[in-house]
Amino acid sequence: MTREPTVAEQSHPNYVKVWGVLVALLAVSVVGPMFEIKLVTLVTAFGVAILKAYLVARNFMHLHIERRYVTYLLVGMVALMLLLFAGVAPDVMKHEGHQWKNEAAQKVVRDAAPAAKVH
């Protein structure tokens, strides 16, 4: 039986150029948060991380020329992660609700407040 062609055999981008873009994005993600503006930090640190991951997946892992169901498989797993987050996060992020109170978490936040002022 003949060997299946590897996905990258069909298309080779300039890998060094892609690496250069990734390094430039890394610089952006380090410098951006130095301005200490919340929106700039969110975009440069986390937005750029998503872009970097996309570039690696597309160009180095050749996901754009891989069979489509592989992308669906990976995206499906990310969706499961988001489902977990949506289901659990409200109980973790909030420390009280209509008929409940997470006193331990409230105490931790309260006790740490004076220390936060020091910084």
Binding site: L74, L84, F85, A105, A112, A115
Partner: peptide, 23 residues
Amino acid sequence: IVIFGGLLAAYVMHRLGHPEWSN
């Protein structure tokens, strides 16, 4: 993805619920 994703999702939700972690 499920292993790391679960761990990171747990980290993010705790981080958002505990601003004192920035200390």
